[in-house]
Write a protein that binds this DNA or RNA. Structure first.
Lengths: 143, 143
DNA sequence: AGAAAGACTATGATATGTCATTGAAGTTGC
DNA sequence: GCAACTTCAATGACATATCATAGTCTTTCT
């Protein structure tokens, strides 16, 4: 049975969460994806990261980040100001509209987390986190 | 910090695993994706499922399954024989080549699992599974 | 300075995820 | 036996994941 396979359970958990999270954002009438939200949120605190740094911090590919940034900019949630000291890069600033969306989404995200983790204690959460970290570590070690 | 967010840890764990798993399959010279492998494996045991049934069993969308089936058929790993009693459907049989690939991939998948779960006890695994199931359940309940 | 090496962004190609819809085929109710 | 409903597969549209590479800009080395 697939349900015995831990990675199937993992996949199911994260996908269930993503579906619920996105559905709740959509229902609130906010037009953003959770991945875009995640990137935008990182940029709120660090506006001078390279795409690779952003990618590392949200555990995505540089190519994915590039496309997400393009969409965020195109939708006016982000502004890209050329950096004087490096012609390849830009400073990525969250716009007014971007702030509005971040503000609108934050409570939804909090609710989502509460819903998803209902009935799970702090101890269990810590254990879960620890196990996930170990799996991540194991998968990174070069064979 | 993002590392405090459980869903970020979840996402990271599953993506790390997927990257490692796919890299190991590629390194072995087998030309298949893990998602295609998963679907093919299900069809090995049940060749008369509808796309929706397959989708449910591998926790994917019907649209995703349709495309994966098209690719598997196109690559000759799967044959689609029309079902006499229902003109909309076909019987999906794993071909010789499909069997060869399944046989080649199985030991790699076993190794991957072993690598990913190194140092994690049966008890911990059971707990992990339980927590993931609870999260999945929580996310499914209608708000 | 000039060349080689490295960093950075953008983009092509392919696969998948998700929602929505279409069109075909089966089922039910009358 | 026909109309309404349901099931099923295919596909369009868009977003993301991944790998690879191109093109630009910077740094380093000599």
């Amino acid at each position: 049975m697939l349900s015995n396979i831990i990675f199937y359970s993992l996949d199911r958990a994260i996908r269930s969460y993503r579906r619920m999270a996105q559905a709740n954002i959509d229902r609130a009438g906010v037009n953003i994806t959770i991945d875009q939200w995640l990137v935008l949120r990182v940029l709120l605190e660090h506006d001078d990261l390279t795409q690779n740094e952003i990618a590392e911090s949200v555990f995505k590919d540089q190519a994915s980040v590039a496309r997400i940034l393009a969409l965020l900019t195109q939708r006016g949630l982000l502004s890209a100001v050329p950096l004087p000291h490096d012609g390849r890069r830009t400073q990525l600033r969250v716009t007014e509209e971007g702030h509005r969306i971040l503000d609108a989404v934050q409570p939804i995200v909090n609710d989502n987390r509460k819903t998803a983790l209902a009935g799970i204690s702090e101890d269990e959460l810590a254990q879960l986190r620890g196990l996930l970290e170990r799996i991540t570590q194991n998968c990174h070690s070069p064979v």
